[in-house]
Amino acid sequence: MTLLPPTPSQTVGPFFGHALPYEGGGDLVPAGHPGAISVHGYVRDGNGDAVPDALLEFWQPGTGLGRVATGADGHWSVRTAPPPAARPYLPVCVFARGLMHHLFTRAYIGPAAAAGGLLAAVPEERRSTLIARPEGDGTYRFDIRLQGEKETVFLDFHG
């Protein structure tokens, strides 16, 4: 079958702030949800500088969609349910001014994250970029580095 050629991506640009983020966009589960966890981190560029105009989306089947913009310091935060053992990760999609085509990555969370799957296929020295680091009290740290040293592992679903 001949496939239709896809519509090319274009950058989200700098001026999405009044259009895409919405109230409660970081709440995949409501406050007080039993067992809820907090996942947060910073988005940084190839110089290690904060990316203050990134937009992140999170999709957890059965839980919900999250959408948050980074702050002036590049920080973001979402509240969600712990991912299931069968899929011990939080899918992340990164948009930003300067980024012509969004990037997918995953925040692996919890003890099941150590087992096999994608993590085993990633070179050991880069694996830690996919693992959300527990900080206690149900809080996990997941930084996204777009380029350079400790560059985050990004994913391709088109192959």
């Binding site: 190839g46 500088d49 930003a96 300067g98 980024l99 777009l146 380029q147 350079g148 990004f154």
Partner: peptide, 8 residues
């Protein structure tokens, strides 16, 4: 400064 150097 905002594109990855490594292939996905």
């Amino acid at each position: 400064l905002r594109h990855p150097h490594r292939a996905p």
